[in-house]
Amino acid sequence: MHELGVVIKVVKTVEDFAKKNGVKKIDTLVLQIGELSSMIPRYIEACYPAAVDGTLMQDTKLKIEILPGNGRCNNCYKVFNLIKSHSQCPNCSSDEWELLSGKEFLIKEIIAC
């Protein structure tokens, strides 16, 4: 489970940001995770308490937003969800597409108290 190491790095990044900007308490951390990324949201949620224990963020809430894995068909240019369509265009059945979104792992928002 590589998620723990990633979450520890996120916590460090957020704490550094908070210190540089005079933020004393953080209420909520919002992460965006693409459904095609290598991060598994339930693992992120499971290891979050251990990663924030003893830090400025130990009382923060974690909110995760899942970003869809979308592609655009190279044949008919339809935008579609790659997972729901099994990587095949639902409009023309082409399996040639360009990835538009879904690999993201972002700190979207830090909500201070």
Rank of each mutant, 00 (worst) to 15 (best):
K84N: 14
F80D: 03
W97I: 02
T28F: 01
S85L: 08
I107S: 03
V23N: 00
E104N: 07
I83S: 00
N70P: 00
E45W: 09
L62W: 06
L31Q: 09
S94R: 04
I64F: 06
V79M: 00
F80Q: 07
G69I: 07
D16M: 07
S94M: 05
E3H: 08
N91P: 00
L4H: 02
I107L: 12
F17R: 00
K103N: 12
W97L: 07
M57R: 02
C47Q: 05
Q58T: 14
Y43C: 08
S85T: 03
L31S: 08
L67N: 11
G102L: 07
I66W: 01
P49T: 06
E45T: 11
T13E: 13
V11L: 09
P90C: 04
A50T: 11
L99I: 15
M1K: 07
V52N: 03
M39W: 11
S101V: 10
A50N: 10
K61W: 03
E98L: 12
E15S: 06
L31P: 09
N74E: 14
Q88K: 15
I111H: 01
K12A: 13
K78E: 15
N91I: 09
D27L: 03
I110N: 02
K103Q: 13
M57N: 04
I111V: 15
L36T: 02
R42H: 11
N91F: 07
K61Q: 15
N75R: 09
G22N: 11
E109P: 10
I64A: 01
K25D: 12
V7T: 11
S85R: 09
G71D: 06
I107M: 04
K19R: 15
M57E: 04
S87N: 13
K103G: 01
L100A: 06
Q88A: 11
P49V: 08
K103L: 14
G69L: 04
C89D: 02
C92V: 06
L36C: 00
N91K: 10
K19P: 01
T60N: 10
A51K: 08
L31F: 12
E109I: 03
